[in-house]
């Protein structure tokens, strides 16, 4: 029961972990390269979700200071970090996609297994 309660208390984290695993699984098992890239994004997003959830305290407000009232603010640091993280993830995605387009020109396929097959036949 205790474990269940723990899970319910931390459901953001749990969902983040589930998403991370789904993303990683898709990335490593699917042979289509574009699918791999999408999965990579899902994986990254799940980590960011977890980061945001860490910064959030129950009932806290967005960290925009308004004068006079003494309220609980969410931790602004994770947000700032994730902004960087998202930008990095987008640039990796862009680079990966450009690689895929170039690979497609050489191999006429986006499927990684097929590429391996072509290479092993050479």
């Amino acid at each position: 029961m205790e474990i269940l309660a723990g899970i319910i208390d931390n459901y953001y984290y749990m969902v983040a972990i589930i998403l991370f695993v789904i993303g990683m699984y898709t990335m490593l098992t699917h042979s289509n390269m574009i699918k791999k890239v999408i999965a990579m994004n899902i994986m990254d997003a799940s980590v960011f979700l977890m980061f945001v959830a860490v910064g959030y305290a129950h009932g806290s407000q967005a960290p925009i200071i308004t004068e006079g009232n003494d309220v609980l603010y969410a931790n602004p640091l994770p947000g700032a970090l994730i902004l960087t993280g998202i930008v990095v993830a987008v640039s990796v995605t862009a680079y990966a996609l450009s690689l895929i387009v170039k690979i497609y020109r050489h191999y006429e396929t986006c499927d990684y297994d097929e590429i391996c097959e072509i290479r092993s036949l050479e």
């Binding site: 991370f20 990683m24 990335m27 990579m40 994986m43 990254d44 990796v92 680079y95 990966a96 690689l99």
Partner: peptide, 9 residues
């Protein structure tokens, strides 16, 4: 790239 993305993830 893919494996290193997994690593950084």
């Amino acid at each position: 790239l893919i494996l290193s993305a997994m690593g950084t993830g």
